[in-house]
């Protein structure tokens, strides 16, 4: 239990710093910016109390906002995503929750489940984020393109880190 808290805290710090110091300075073709920090919400244990889920999402979004001077923008989008997480898990799962591992992973829940799970939540987050930032309908389709390309990049980063950092957990199982 203590180990789980420590691991998640370290992941939180690492993802925030990685996002604000490296990813926010990438500028891929003027359209795209991956928002990889939400990986933290994706990986929270299944047994996380739902109130804690929301509080953590709020703190996470606000920490990103402090560095980008967009107060409330990332917090609002991350909250919507965290709010949807329990419902998404319930809808896409065929087996009862007891059959799952401790936290969501490509290796314990299977490729199809994890892809669907992360794709839906990443899309929810990106749509909320980009349209809140825009807040008008005049550039609707060019923003949709930004949402889609950014989602692709975020998903690539999520799968890469699943394969690089979490493959070891599979062999342990």
């Amino acid at each position: 239990m203590g180990n789980l808290i420590l691991r998640n805290s370290v992941r939180f710090l690492f993802l925030v710093l990685f996002q604000v110091l490296i990813l926010n300075h990438l500028n891929l073709g003027g359209y795209t910016n991956p928002y990889f920090y939400i990986y933290f919400i994706l990986l929270l244990p299944f047994a996380t109390p739902r109130w804690l889920l929301l509080i953590l999402a709020f703190i996470l979004g606000l920490s990103i906002d402090i560095f980008t001077n967009t107060y409330g923008l990332n917090a609002a989008a991350t909250l919507i995503m965290a709010f949807c997480r329990p419902y998404v898990i319930r809808i896409i799962s065929r087996e009862p929750e007891e059959a799952f591992g401790i936290q969501p992973s490509l290796w314990s829940e299977g490729f199809q489940w994890f892809t669907l799970y992360s794709l839906i939540l990443v899309l929810i987050h990106h749509i909320a984020l980009f349209y809140l930032e825009l807040f008008r309908f005049t550039e609707f389709f060019s923003t949709l393109l930004r949402v889609l390309t950014s989602t692709v990049f975020t998903m690539v980063l999520i799968f890469l880190s699943e394969m690089i950092f979490r493959a070891r957990e599979r062999t342990r199982k």
Partner: peptide
């Protein structure tokens, strides 16, 4: 409580967002 906590936090962040967006983040 889950829905209410969500709504409270979401409203807080939206208030932050619109307030500071309007004044161009100057105060914060």
């Amino acid at each position: 409580y889950f829905i209410f906590l969500f709504l409270i936090l979401e409203v807080i962040s939206l208030i932050l967002f619109f307030h500071y967006n309007k004044y161009q983040n100057a105060v914060m």
